[in-house]
Nucleic acid binder design. Structure first.
Length: 432
DNA sequence: TCTGGGGTCCTAGGACCC
DNA sequence: TCTGGGGTCCTAGGACCC
């Protein structure tokens, strides 16, 4: 493989070790590496809590993993169980990225998720250390000293190498640093046989590769790339590049995509069988999603509805449900969007018990002035629109529970209970 | 596994147009 | 009309990530 045409930069992918659990430990004056602490979601719509994060010692001593269920967590007084405070984690994430900006220009910093960022240090590396590892240690120390948090760093010549170095090496390294280059890539990565561990290979793809006789990253690197592309489409071409540590797409894969849709979904506390109850939740979610979108001064040209059915006792792998999308005239009017959602639901639902409801808005565009629909009473439309905006404003100023539809107090409504959640989890304070 | 929640991207077939 | 070719839009569905 000739790497001379490939980009040779210096990228750091930095993540926070057990981020939520570490923040909670620091807040309590505990060392994040020594505390035995788990952050448990209190979202009670399913009745069973979810472990969002476990400290390294909680994982080691009690075998608790990040998405453990409540009932899997042993009862032990040595385990500190705390509720999530999403807003606090967002604040810490901002503080961390502020430190990163001292090492790279704004344009070379790419926050990837709440606990991961990519730094393109190709231009600035010489300023901060002799070797990439030295630069990484320096940044780690800064964050450790200022915020008390431990970070894990993957170093690569391109973003994908940095990501794999982070996931596959740094997390097991005693200095919490991993480094991949074009040169050491085969030695480091090809022996991997548990393909699911590799970023971008999920359960289904791993099984597909197994079926093709590909049992290791080395196997993947030595297939005929044209045949793989034939078999798996563009994914096949990407996987082949991945096996060689090549990142042709630059940031396209690793970079967090720009918001192109808004969606909300929830698991219901029980199976819903009554149409009016299902539609009530559907309206609430429609209202919520529309409200978020409008907050960003956008309107939607496409709506989608997801209705997941209750598990019927069949051992079917795939969960049954219906997913429908529909083009609409671009609008940011909640009543219009909700009407479309309900219509879509009624057209497709055949009475199955429902456990999961989701709403998506896409084909977004900047909403300018209200576009009047020719076929409806203009006064009514203007009034609807003004009403929506007033509600948004109240929610912005006084929180999401300031104004809720009276219908939400009815049986089946979940909005009130969920209003204080951030990302589906407890926000931890009243403003977000 | 008997249900967490919010996202994006890719593929394929049908409808429709010129 | 035993039958062209290229393109776009729409919808459904699959897969993956944090």
């Amino acid at each position: 493989m000739d790497y001379s045409q490939e980009p040779h930069g210096m990228f750091l992918m930095i993540d926070n070790k057990s981020f939520y659990a570490s923040v909670e430990s620091v807040e309590r004056g505990l060392n994040p590496l020594k505390s035995v602490l788990i952050v448990m979601s209190e979202a009670d719509n399913t009745g069973s809590g979810l472990v969002l994060a476990a400290s390294p010692m909680a994982k080691k001593l009690f075998g608790i993993s990040n998405v453990s269920r409540q009932y899997e967590v042993p009862h032990d007084e040595n385990i500190l169980v705390v509720p999530p405070r999403m807003n606090l984690y967002i604040q810490k994430n901002l503080a961390i990225n502020k430190i990163f900006r001292e090492y790279v220009a704004d344009a070379d910093l790419f926050p990837y998720s709440i606990d991961e960022s990519i730094l393109d240090m190709t231009k600035s590396r010489r300023l901060f250390g002799k070797t990439p590892e030295a630069v990484a240690r320096r940044i780690q120390l800064r964050i450790r000293t200022e915020l008390g948090l431990y970070t894990t760093v993957g170093i690569g010549e391109n973003p994908v190498q940095a990501k794999l170095a982070l996931d596959l090496q740094a997390k097991h390294d005693h200095e919490l640093i991993g480094r991949l280059t074009y040169e050491n890539f085969p030695e480091a990565i090809w022996p991997i046989t548990n393909l699911e561990k590799v970023w971008s290979i999920g359960h289904r793809t791993a099984a597909h590769l197994q079926r093709l006789g590909i049992h290791s990253m080395g196997d993947l690197a030595h297939v005929n790339p044209y045949e793989l592309r034939q078999e798996m489409g563009m994914i096949g071409a990407q996987l082949f590049a991945l096996a060689w540590g090549i990142d042709r797409s630059k940031f396209h894969q690793v970079r967090p995509p720009k918001e192109k849709s808004w969606s909300n979904s929830q698991v219901l506390p029980r199976d819903y069988k009554v149409q009016s109850e299902i539609e009530l939740v559907l309206r609430e979610i429609g209202q919520q999603t529309t409200s978020r979108m409008r907050h960003h001064r956008q309107q939607a040209g496409c709506i989608s509805l997801y209705v997941g059915f209750a598990w019927d006792g069949q051992a079917d792998d795939g969960r049954s449900g219906l997913h429908r999308t529909r083009r609409i005239d671009p609008t940011d009017n909640a009543q219009t969007i909700i009407r479309e959602l309900v219509t879509l639901f009624r057209e497709n639902w055949e009475g199955q018990p429902v456990r999961n409801i989701g709403v998506g808005l896409s084909r977004l565009s900047q909403s300018t002035n209200l576009q009047l629909n020719l076929f409806q009473n203009p006064q009514r439309q203007i009034k609807d629109d003004r009403f929506d905006r007033v509600i948004d404003e109240l929610r912005d100023r006084f929180g999401k529970t300031a104004v809720i539809p009276a219908s939400s107090l009815m049986k089946g409504g979940t909005m009130l209970r969920r209003a204080s959640l951030v990302g589906g989890h407890n926000g931890g304070n009243s403003f977000d």
